[in-house]
């Protein structure tokens, strides 16, 4: 197995163009598991950890650009105030060791329906920046996933960064697992309430072949919330929102849980996160 070690982004893109079969490795917390379990035997690994540009983040007007290689720990510590929903999700990933190494770029690269970074990216309407020697494109995250563990990433492309609007208002993330830490989501839910723009964003994890939004729930809530009111969300609105979120999911029965439980739990999480986000955004 070849081990390619570019030290700049340009070298990385050139290497990926020259070796499209090379598997990028960032934190390695998915790649090494696949190798150890003998699920994958790539001819080459493309180590991205020397590419400093991938681990940077910064602002660009209204939007933040976060490098694909920023590990979860830094997202929690450095971006917790600006991207609270993503930071909450990051806090639930694995263990401290995994959060030290694992990256959002890797989460996107794996494109697992259970990836915890995905729902907050969906809820926030993030864009994924993909690059190759051919050029750079920005893909809305809800167009990024094409199936279980599949995405629009082309063989010669790398994930450079994601772009996200800092939260001014209520962001929430909640994840169901059958133990209290170090657990893959049975299902998860992210919510963004933007009072200024009066928009609602949602993201559902582990309850469909890909991470998905709940557009009908978003539209319903945006129309039903009394955005100017400081009062609580009417219970009937919260309940209907929960129902619509659950309806947007397409879960299955598997070792981690049943489809019926996932739907039920999503409706509960949707109701609860709505209450917290609405209060948090006041």
């Amino acid at each position: 197995m070849d081990f390619l070690r570019p030290s700049t982004w340009e070298e990385a893109l050139a290497a990926k163009a020259a070796h499209p079969e090379a598997v990028p490795i960032a934190g390695g917390t998915d790649v090494m598991v696949e190798l150890n379990f003998d699920r994958r035997r790539p001819p080459a690994l493309l180590d991205l950890t020397r590419v400093a540009a991938l681990t940077e983040w910064g602002g660009d007007g209204d939007l933040l650009r976060v490098g694909a290689g920023v590990p979860y720990r830094r997202i929690i510590e450095e971006l917790g105030g600006r991207l609270p929903g993503l930071a909450m999700a990051a806090r639930t990933v694995g263990s401290p060791q995994i959060r030290n190494r694992g990256t959002v770029g890797g989460n996107l690269g794996s494109a697992s329906p259970a990836g915890d970074a995905h729902p907050p990216l969906l809820a926030a309407g993030a864009e994924i920046e993909l690059a190759s020697v051919r050029g750079v494109r920005r893909v809305p995250v809800d167009e990024f996933f094409t199936g279980p563990k599949r995405s629009v990433l082309a063989p010669d492309e790398l994930i450079a960064a994601f772009w996200m609007r800092p939260a001014r208002t209520g962001d929430q993330f909640a994840k169901i697992g059958t133990r209290n830490a170090m657990v893959i989501a049975v299902c998860s839910f992210a919510l963004t309430l933007d009072r200024e723009r009066r928009t609602v964003g949602t993201g559902i994890g582990s309850a469909a072949p890909t991470p998905v939004r709940a557009p009908a729930a978003e539209a319903f809530l945006a129309a039903s919330l009394d955005w100017d009111s400081p009062g609580a969300v009417p219970p009937a609105v919260a309940a209907e929102f929960g129902r619509l979120v659950a309806a947007a999911a397409a879960p299955i029965d598997d070792v981690r849980g049943t489809a019926a439980y996932r739907r039920h739990a999503l409706s509960v999480l949707a109701r609860r996160t709505l209450t917290w986000a609405w209060e948090g955004s006041r």
Binding site: T92, A174, G177, N180, L269
Partner: peptide, 11 residues
């Protein structure tokens, strides 16, 4: 219950 997965604030 749920720990840092943030599933309840007491509800």
């Amino acid at each position: 219950p749920g720990g840092v997965s943030n599933t309840t604030h007491g509800e």
